[in-house]
């Protein structure tokens, strides 16, 4: 009985966070913040859903499968976000008007897309 209720609560929280993630992707003002919503709230939500499924089935073999999906998603979501974020910055995706500072401005090589080596603390806080 207790496990049943626990799994229901977990599934509900998971669904809610996935809803929040989609709303964030729709509403956030610039690409980077949409990426925030997609990477985190969605991964968090699906984490809860999978935990709920693992508790619901309660069998070792199935729960381990659910947990391995969870682990895999937690390992890959940041990588995908990093790739998209980097590509977006190189494509000069505009930052939101309220962005306070941008330490990355002008650091990319135009041709090779390499970040120039920066040994001392960069202090070019350019207002955008």
């Amino acid at each position: 009985m207790f496990w049943d209720i626990l799994s229901k609560i977990l599934i509900l929280i998971g669904g809610f966070f996935m809803f929040v993630a989609a709303l964030g992707v729709l509403r956030m003002p610039d690409l980077y913040m949409r990426l925030h919503a997609n990477t985190k709230s969605a991964t968090f939500g699906i984490g809860f859903l999978l935990l709920g499924a693992a508790v619901h089935f309660g069998e070792f073999a199935i729960s381990i499968r659910a947990l391995s999906i969870l682990l895999f998603l937690f390992a890959t979501a940041p990588v995908a976000a990093h790739m998209i974020g980097r590509a977006a910055y190189i494509a000069k995706s505009p930052l939101w008007g309220g962005t306070l500072s941008d330490d990355l401005a002008g650091k990319y090589d135009k041709k090779t897309h390499e970040l120039t080596a920066e040994i001392e603390e960069p202090k070019a806080a350019k207002k955008n």
């Binding site: 996935m18 969605a42 699906i46």
Partner: peptide
Amino acid sequence: IAIDLMATLSIGFMTL
């Protein structure tokens, strides 16, 4: 980004 979110949502659907 939207498609990535849709894929995650599909995983959620399958789990549910």
